[in-house]
């Protein structure tokens, strides 16, 4: 793309090699860490919350989306009409990023990852309490939690700290560098240690975070009789959790659940929504009953899986910019 506005730094949204990139400062920092300074965009322009720039005849600004650090909604104003592109978002408080701000608009482009009524995320503190109860029950085993490297990992750490877990949290190598970016951006995560290079016994009773692909693979052999957990909104459905070989499914998601998707649509008050990234039909059906017109927006290269650790992140090549194109 010649010019791209990036909602957040997940690799299926933040592709390398655009000529000009506009994003929040934290998203740009994360993109540079993941893609390398040069591949993150020929020219990189940071836009703080509420700052406005003009692109052609359109006023562009960003508002927090609450998905991961730096994640933004894109607000487009033109001739008295406003379009808001949500990107991925969630409504629950998250100490590692700014919370979602509902913005009144005429067209709301919403994600729909968990747009079925079976997806209603429990209180994350409840899920963390289940994890800690399991750690107490199996003190000689290592609890390894599969989680997405950007966002979920840092949120889990923050949730564990809130629950009073002060011990060092051990990280798979793929997770450490992004935690460092979070620290640079002022998000404090407490003591973190590598999970590698230790004797098997050293990790007894410890909590280890690792990418979902590693937790049931050879990498996990280094751990002491691991309890394999996976933190994802998909864990709500047993069959999904079972097929992943997970012993302790934790329903912790960085996306809006069914109720929150509906509440958000009502809150922004848009008479029309465009639905993308998920199960469009159920949300369109449901808002239709409330007089809101819904349209399914099929994005280029959109895969079947969400980025909550159940599919290759590259499977979803869609990007907020495609919406504008």
């Amino acid at each position: 793309m010649e010019r791209a506005i990036i909602t957040h730094a997940h690799s299926d949204h933040a592709r390398p090699g655009h000529s000009s990139v506009l994003a929040s400062p934290a998203t740009l920092a994360l993109m540079r860490a993941r893609l390398g300074a040069d591949r993150a965009g020929g020219s990189q322009q940071a836009l703080g919350w509420g700052e406005v720039i003009r692109v052609g005849g359109v006023e562009v600004s960003l508002a927090p989306a609450g998905h991961v650090l730096g994640s933004a909604q894109i607000v487009l104003d033109h001739a008295g009409s406003r379009v808001v592109v949500s990107g991925d978002y969630k409504r629950r408080p998250d100490p590692t990023c700014d919370g979602f701000e509902p913005i009144a608009c005429d067209v709301f482009v919403t994600e729909a990852t968990f747009a079925l009524p079976v997806f209603r995320h429990p209180d994350p503190a409840h899920e963390i309490a289940r994890l800690l109860a399991s750690v107490a029950l199996f003190p000689d085993r290592t609890h390894v939690v599969g989680c997405y490297a950007l966002g979920k990992c840092q949120r889990l750490i923050a949730l564990l700290r809130e629950a009073g877990w002060d011990a060092p949290i051990h990280l798979h190598g793929a997770l450490a560098s992004l935690c460092a970016v979070y620290e640079d951006q002022g998000v404090h995560l407490g003591p973190l240690k590598p999970a590698t290079g230790l004797a098997r016994d050293a990790l007894k009773g410890a909590i280890v975070l690792a990418p979902p692909s590693a937790v049931t693979d050879r990498w996990a052999r280094r751990l002491s009789e691991p309890v394999v957990a996976l933190a994802s909104g998909w864990m709500r459905v047993r069959q999904r959790a079972k097929s992943r070989g997970v012993e302790l499914p934790l329903v912790i998601s960085d996306h809006a659940d069914w109720d929150e998707l509906n509440e958000t649509v009502d809150e922004v008050g848009a008479p029309e929504i465009w639905v993308t990234h998920g199960r469009e039909e159920a949300l369109i059906h449901c808002v239709g009953a409330r007089g809101v017109r819904g349209r399914a927006l099929r994005l280029v290269g959109y895969g079947d899986e969400d980025d909550e650790g159940l599919g290759p992140e590259e499977a979803r090549a869609a990007d907020a910019v495609d919406v504008l194109a």
Partner: peptide, 12 residues
Amino acid sequence: DPALFAWSYDYV
């Protein structure tokens, strides 16, 4: 809602 139930049952 019956339609939502049908989609959900199909998924779960």
